[in-house]
Each structure stands twice: as structure tokens, then as C-alpha cells.
């Protein structure tokens, strides 16, 4: 098998701009699935709206392209109704954390066995480069001509606080790491979050003078450090990469099975 066996080739070349990080995320994701050898019929990819969401149409799994911000709510219905499915939810930063922020924290709180891939390009690309909740301070965007004054979320800290049982971060530069972390996230039982910093050269890069896609990838290389690395120890202000949370908390669908047992017992007692 090659990654081509996992895509719907007739829709390529895809709609993303030249050098878009989302294509690299797709690339890493396909390799992760290929290496895990999961039956294609067992995977549902559920996305919302935005550049990131288009990933669902390109992959040869069951694909559910939904409405803006709500993919995790659809995913919850899919997973709870058919727990043997593997549910993957690729999201953009606006999709996941602005309009979809509530669903994100509640999916994490429930620890439902869904994998959320947050492709963080710090901008709304599909609509033309407006600032997002991940843009952070002093960023130029088409709705922030005088630079942003809003703080950004720290996705990792938010996911941790909300109760996700697997939380990781990587970038589109660190592709081998991305494949490894995606595999771990997908295999993890419980709500897994993987943030992948993903360049948007067209809007974020151009408006903020970050150069082309290659320059943006160089920045990911320079400005991030792997947890436990010497580089990070010497420069603790770098953006951390790696696994931040990995624990075995009770998973929602498994806990629900216990509810069914309890309910059946209670019903049986009533019959007596």
C-alpha cells in the first residue's frame, strides 16, 4: 500500500494554496494511517468548515464534512452510536477554538475516543486572512489592519485543563515527529488532541512578512524545541513540541456501557 491508496485521487490537485501546511498535515496523516494499517471502512473523518475541513473530501474513508465549528459534536454522535469506529476530526484553529471552542472543551471533558487534529495556521484562510483566536498579539490580518490586541489561546494548556487524555504538539516542518505523534494520538483510547503548527504563506505569511512557505518552515525549526531537548532547556521560551499529556482516564463510550449494565440491572429488579 502507498499513501495514494488512501486518497480520492480524482479530486487532486487539491484546493490548497502552494506551500500550504495543510497539505503537509494530510501527507503526515496518510502515512500515520498507512503505518497503523487501520481498515478504511472503520475510519470516519469528520470536519467542519474552512481550509482545514476540506481534508475530509480528499481521503478515502467515510467522510462527513459538516458545519463550521461543530465537527466534534457530530463526531460525538458518530462515536457514541457506533463505538467501534475510529473518528478523526481535522480542524482549523478558528473552527476548533472560536466557533467550536465549546464543543472542543466538552469533548475533552468527556474524554470521548476521538482524535482532534488542530491545524493551527493562526488565521482564517478560506475567508481571506482574518485574525483568529490563535493569531495572538500584534498580528496583521484583513480584519486587524492596525494589528491585533487579542491574546491567543494556548491549545495545549486548554486541552489539558479541559481533560483531554492525550495532548501533543508538532509542526509541519517536523514531519517524522508528526507521523509518530499522529499514530500515537489515533491509537490512544480517549480524547486525543494534536496541534500541528501549519503555515499559511498566502495570508498569515504575506501579511506579517514571514516570507514564503520555506521561510515559515524555517521559523518552525528555529522557534520550537522538543520537550527534554538541550535546545529547549537552553531556550525555555521556545514553543514546546512533543507529548504533554498521555494518560488512561475512563473513556466515555466505555463508561456508557457501564450505564447500560446498570440500567439493565435496575430494569430487571423492577420486573421481579
Amino acid at each position: 500500500m502507498s499513501v495514494k491508496d488512501y486518497i480520492r485521487e480524482r479530486f487532486f490537485p487539491h484546493i490548497w494554496c502552494p506551500g500550504c501546511g495543510h497539505g503537509i498535515v494530510l501527507n503526515s496523516f496518510l502515512r500515520a494511517v498507512e503505518q497503523l494499517k487501520i481498515n478504511k471502512n472503520k475510519i470516519v473523518i469528520t470536519s467542519g468548515i474552512g481550509c482545514s475541513a476540506r481534508i475530509s473530501g480528499y481521503v478515502d474513508f467515510h467522510s462527513l464534512h459538516t458545519i463550521h465549528g461543530r465537527a466534534l459534536a457530530f463526531a460525538t454522535g458518530l462515536k457514541l452510536s457506533k463505538p467501534k469506529l475510529k473518528i478523526i476530526v481535522p480542524m482549523g484553529d478558528g473552527d476548533a477554538l472560536a466557533i467550536g471552542g465549546n464543543h472542543f472543551i466538552h469533548a475533552a471533558r468527556r474524554n470521548i475516543d476521538v482524535t482532534a487534529i488542530i491545524m493551527n495556521n493562526r488565521i482564517y484562510g478560506m475567508t481571506g486572512g482574518q485574525y483568529s483566536p490563535l493569531s495572538g498579539l500584534n498580528i496583521k490580518a484583513s480584519t486587524a489592519p492596525f494589528l491585533t490586541i487579542e491574546n491567543d489561546f494556548n491549545i495545549v494548556e486548554l486541552a489539558k485543563a479541559a481533560g483531554a487524555s492525550f495532548v501533543a504538539r508538532t509542526t509541519t516542518y517536523h514531519v517524522l515527529e508528526a507521523v509518530t505523534l499522529l499514530k500515537k494520538a489515533i491509537k490512544h483510547k480517549g480524547f486525543s488532541v494534536i496541534e500541528i503548527l501549519s503555515q499559511c504563506p498566502t495570508y498569515f505569511g504575506r501579511k506579517n512578512k514571514k516570507g514564503d512557505a520555506c521561510s515559515m518552515l524555517e521559523l518552525y525549526k528555529k522557534n520550537t524545541g522538543k520537550i527534554g531537548s538541550k535546545k529547549l532547556n537552553n531556550n525555555p521560551d521556545l514553543i514546546k513540541r512533543g507529548i504533554f499529556v498521555n494518560n488512561n482516564k475512563p473513556e466515555y463510550c466505555e463508561e456508557y456501557e457501564k450505564i447500560i449494565q446498570k440500567a439493565a440491572t435496575a430494569a430487571a429488579i423492577r420486573q421481579i
Binding site: T46, L64, T66, I67, R70, A73, F74, A75, T76, G77, L78, K79, L80, S81, K82, L85, N102, H103, H106
Partner: peptide, 13 residues
Amino acid sequence: IASMCAIIGASLT
């Protein structure tokens, strides 16, 4: 909103 989305997901299974 989430309730409506969840039932759509479950209908698809």
C-alpha cells in the same frame, strides 16, 4: 447545537 449535530452523526451510523 451540539445535540442536533450529535443526532445527525448517529443517524449516519
